[in-house]
Each structure stands twice: as C-alpha cells, then as structure tokens.
Design a protein around this nucleic acid. Structure first.
Length: 318
DNA sequence: AACCAGTCCAACCGCTATTTA
DNA sequence: ATAAATAGCGGTTGGACTGGT
C-alpha cells in the first residue's frame, strides 16, 4: 500500500542552504533533471528532505529566475492578476515566468500591498485595504472563493477571460505615458537571466547546462519516471534561448500546475508553457502582448486560454 | 560608533490534491 | 477501493540587512 516513505525526519537539515549544498543539488538536477525529488536526498547525500530540495530548486536555483527589481510592468501585472485571481501566487507566477511564486508573494506582501494601501488612502476611498479580493473580503472578480474547489477557479478564469483580458490590457497600458522611460517588457535577455545562486561554481555549472548541447543539457524532459505532473511542471529544460523546441518543456510550476488541475485547459497551457520554455523566460510577456494585441486587432472573440495562447507553433509569436 | 526599528527574503509549516501500490 | 506518500500551494516566520537616531 502506498509508497515508500519520502524522507525520515531524523537528521534532516534545516535552515539556509550552503553553496556546497546548492552545488550538489544543481549537479544532481543537471544530471537527472528536476523531478523525482524523493530520490534527491538519497542520491546526492544531501541531508535535506525532498520537499526542501524541490523548494530550493524552484525558488532559487532553477535557471531563468530573475531576482529583485520588479519592473513597473511586472508590478502592474501582479496587481491586476492579484485582483483577478486572489492570492493564487502560482497562477500569477505563471504569467511571469521569470519570477517564482514565492518571489511574487513576497513582493506583494512587502511592497505592493502597502503601495496600494497608500494609493487607496490617497484616493480617500476604500476602507477595506481591499487591494485584492483576498485582502479584506472585498468583492471583486478574484474574490477568494473558499467554496470553490481547487481547480475550478481556472475554469472560472476562463469564463471571465474577457475581464482578465481587460485587466491585463489596463495593466499594460497604464505604463506608456513615458515611452522613453518605460522599461521594455522584458529587459533581461532571455536565457541569460540572473542566476540565483551566489556561488560562482554553481553558475558555471548551470551555464554548462544551459548551453545547447551542453553536457547533461536536455536531460530535463526525461526526468525519471515520476508522475507526469511533477515531472513536467518542474522542468525547465533547455531553456537557453535558441534552445530547443521541447514541447514538453515547461516553465515554473505555476501554469503547468494550474493546467494539471484542469484537464480541459491543460493542453493549451502546457503548449504555452512549451513555448515559454522554448524561448526562455521572455516570451511570456510577448505572448501577453500578442494576446492583447490580438484582441485589439479584432479577434476578441477567442475566449479561452486556448485562444489566448494558441501555440501550435510558438514561432508564430516571436 | 552604537543601538534600535523597520524591511526584505529565504525557508519552513501545514494543508490539499494527486498519484501510486 | 483504499490507504499512504508525494507534489504543490499559500501563509507565516526568523534572520540578515539597512537606514535613522
């Protein structure tokens, strides 16, 4: 019955990761791809539980993560998506492939919440700090819906897609008052994103991995035999720019995770994920742009994510 | 220069959904 | 069909860092 235990809790190390540990983890992932986290501690000798390894990888070591300095675009996008989705950080993160849900969550809690609170106070409106729906029970599209089982909200999102689209359009159009100053949608060169680790050796290691055809590169997709969901959601294989058109490639867990929850949209989302992984982190914004542009151009009837990211051929987008 | 308060972020905790034997 | 384990998510916390006094 069941599976073998993941990790016995005795002797499990906690607290900050050391560069050596990072290196071990990165080496392992480089060789085996992300996924099958259960095997990581045993295979690497890390005294960490699998969960901790997974977290460390997804939030910190995974290539393509951009850290710090949220752009105005990102900020606005987060605000709108938060209003739309509530505190579904993973889902929000799926629109910002370079950011982790943890990062976004932190940023929201430390910056945006206050910022919006201030703004609302300034407007004299409000009362409820109700930036986000989940903030104070304020109404709104993204209201926290305790009664809605996980997985259904995506469907709701689909039905509300026009609202979403409007919100995103607003988010992206708020900016350009100063085109000269306005940051590019994604200033960071794809595939060359800042690696999270401070340890140079890890960065070097990753470089090797990122290089197309680099040793161990492209291992990602085959990741162990572990479950489809996990395997695919966690991988970000071959994500260097010119990389590889791995259809199974995916970006951060968020979108794919969401996709996994709703079979009917999973294909589309994973397609999108594939496209994203395909060209590095940058494309997400491009796709959003395309999406919005598309709407403007009069294809506004496409309601669902399928239409949002019709990625039969990702190259169409870039 | 030393202390204090505030801020930020990495990591942990607890829960739920999903998967597997 | 069921129980147990894993993966993933969101909330929270603790320690490091920074700025002000």
């Amino acid at each position: 019955m069941g599976r073998p235990p993941c990790c016995d809790k005795v002797g499990v190390k906690k607290g900050p990761w050391t560069p050596e540990e990072d290196l071990m983890l990165v080496s392992y992932v480089q060789e085996h791809g992300p996924g099958n986290w259960r095997a990581v501690p045993t295979n690497t000798g890390l005294m960490r539980c699998s969960k901790s390894c997974r977290l460390r990888w997804t939030n910190y070591l995974r290539p393509g993560i951009k850290r710090g300095n949220f752009t105005d675009q990102e900020e606005k996008l987060i605000v709108h998506l938060q209003a739309l989705l509530g505190n579904r950080w993973a889902a929000i993160a799926s629109y910002l492939p370079e950011r982790t849900d943890n990062d976004i969550k932190n940023y929201w809690n430390t910056h945006l919440k206050k910022k919006l609170k201030k703004m609302q106070a300034g407007e004299g409106g409000g009362g409820d700090d109700g930036v986000g729906p989940s903030e104070g029970g304020g109404g709104g599209v993204g209201e926290k819906r305790p009664s809605v089982p996980k997985g259904q909200w995506e469907r709701r999102l689909q039905t509300d897609i026009h609202t979403a689209r409007q919100a995103l359009r607003d988010a992206l159009s708020l900016e350009p008052s100063t085109p000269a100053k306005a940051p590019p949608l994604l200033p960071t060169p794809p595939g060359l994103a800042t690696y999270a680790s401070s340890a140079e050796n890890i960065a070097r290691l990753l470089e090797g991995w990122l290089r197309p055809g680099g040793s161990g590169g492209g291992k990602g997709p085959e990741v162990s035999g572990s479950t489809s969901t996990t395997a695919t959601t966690q991988q970000r294989p071959q994500f260097s720019g010119e990389g590889a058109a791995s259809a199974s490639a995916s970006h951060s867990g968020g979108a794919a995770a969401a996709a996994a929850q709703t079979p009917e949209c999973s294909t589309e989302t994973s397609k999108m994920a594939g496209a994203v992984g395909d060209a590095g982190a940058a494309p997400a914004f491009s796709m959003l742009e395309s999406w919005l542009l598309d709407d403007v151009m009069g294809h506004g009837e496409m309601g669902l994510m399928a239409d949002v990211m019709p990625l039969g051929d990702p190259s169409e987008f870039f």
